[in-house]
Design a protein around this nucleic acid. Structure first.
Lengths: 246, 246
DNA sequence: GCAATCAATTGACAATAGTCAAGGCAAACA
DNA sequence: TGTTTGCCTTGACTATTGTCAATTGATTGC
């Protein structure tokens, strides 16, 4: 096994999704995989293209989105470390259901869908893990839709910030760093950049957070939680909102 | 096998999701199932309750939703004939991820989750069918989120109406009947009843549809498609938007 | 048949978010 | 160092949607 293959093997092994896979399988798929570094703005695949590979994000950020004929786009999600994307195309006649593009310089592992399909069909535990991952993702997307329905712009931003924090540690001062452009955060939350800018200002007034460029600080998350989670059906800290799948 | 069990058996057999299941399994789960008729407004289960059963809708309509402490609710989806709901709780520690309530008088089949779990773990083809169903549903929810982002109220209504039509037959006059209250359609589309009422009026002006109570008529779908699908990433007719799973 | 109830519509107004245009700021580059 | 570029902010305005209140309309039950 090459050094790269070994690296990929170790990465996969650490993912919960692949925890039920044999070492043989991991070795085989790792050998067929490619690890690449892509600059910001690289298209991984396009909506409705023929799908032969799925991707694992090693580092960086990748947005998945769809766009209308006149260039308007809706961002479905933005993934980072340990998330996979494009894998659902094996259930969609090998057609990608969305487009994917790096939004920061990113390290990506390209893996053959055919081997994933084989493994699902032959390893019941893996199929179960896959189902589990999809159910978790689905719940997350349901919540996303809920937020669009019940939360206004400042609340959606507050919720976004909270999800960037380590929710296990509460109390005490917190520093949050936006992982990518504000314009992109805006789009991820379904609003215009101008709205984002003004809504962040409002959030500052309402919760006393400090905004310095792409860093947000606050003495305590309390006020942020009270303000943002008021219009939500889940209580803070939101559980089950982590998933590897995309 | 009782007569009811036989009825349920036959229903399940006709669903794509269960097409890979043995007759033995269908007989077994049908015998453990209950077929009930519920009036409008009956709660099937509540968000975060312990989940022991999943449900199949035989007729009528069931909304799945979540609500905040102050009673605001977000409707995730509304299901009818042949759709199942509550089944994802087996991947969520046997906790229902949303609440479910009938919105029309409905015939429902209550089925034990434990047997579903067994079948997934022992029948790889069924696991695959389950994955397939979830992937399809996921794509549909992604599109729902996209619509909230890109479409305005009249367009969302137009799109909703189009999805109620038989999209294979095009051209010629069409009559569409709203399957439940306008208030509920509004909520399903993430808007207030007042907004729905005004948006429907606007849609009428823009596309020439005729609105009489809960019946909508038009000489041709052309104008409706042109107006509603302009802000969408999929072209009409939208494929892959049908699923049995919920 | 009539009251009661709930759904739906409408008007007037408020709040929220989007659009367009103009600057400001900061990182990157020559 | 100065310029360029792209991101971000701000102002002024518009559009869309929400809110509250009143009314109409339709359906149900007595």
């Amino acid at each position: 096994m090459t050094e790269t293959a070994q690296t990929i093997h170790d990465m996969l092994q650490r993912l919960e999704l692949f925890s039920s896979c044999s070492d043989d399988f991991l070795t085989k798929i790792s050998s067929a995989a490619h690890l690449t570094t892509k600059p910001k703005g690289h298209m991984l695949f396009i909506h409705e293209d023929q799908a032969d590979y799925f991707y694992l994000v090693k580092s960086g950020w990748v947005k998945i989105f769809r766009e209308t004929l006149d260039g308007d786009q809706a961002i479905v999600d933005i993934f980072t470390n340990g998330h996979i994307l494009g894998e659902t195309s094996i259930f969609q006649d090998d057609i990608y259901p969305y487009s994917a593009e790096t939004v920061e310089p990113s390290e990506l592992v390209q893996l053959p869908l055919s081997m994933l399909k084989d493994e699902i069909e032959t390893n019941p535990k893996f199929a179960m893990a896959m189902l589990s991952s999809m159910a978790r993702y689905r719940k997350q997307q349901d919540q996303e839709l809920e937020h669009r329905t019940l939360q206004n712009a400042p609340q959606r931003i507050g919720c976004f910030l909270l999800r960037l924090t380590d929710q296990s540690q509460s109390g005490g001062p917190v520093r949050i760093h936006l992982p990518y452009d504000k314009t992109l955060v805006a789009s991820r939350l379904g609003m215009q950049p101008e709205t984002f800018s003004r809504a962040l200002k409002k959030l500052k007034q309402e919760t006393g957070i400090e905004v310095k460029g792409s860093t947000i600080e606050t003495d305590s998350l309390d006020r942020l939680v009270r303000y943002s989670c008021a219009a939500c059906t889940s209580e803070f800290p939101c559980k089950d909102l982590e998933t590897e799948s995309g």
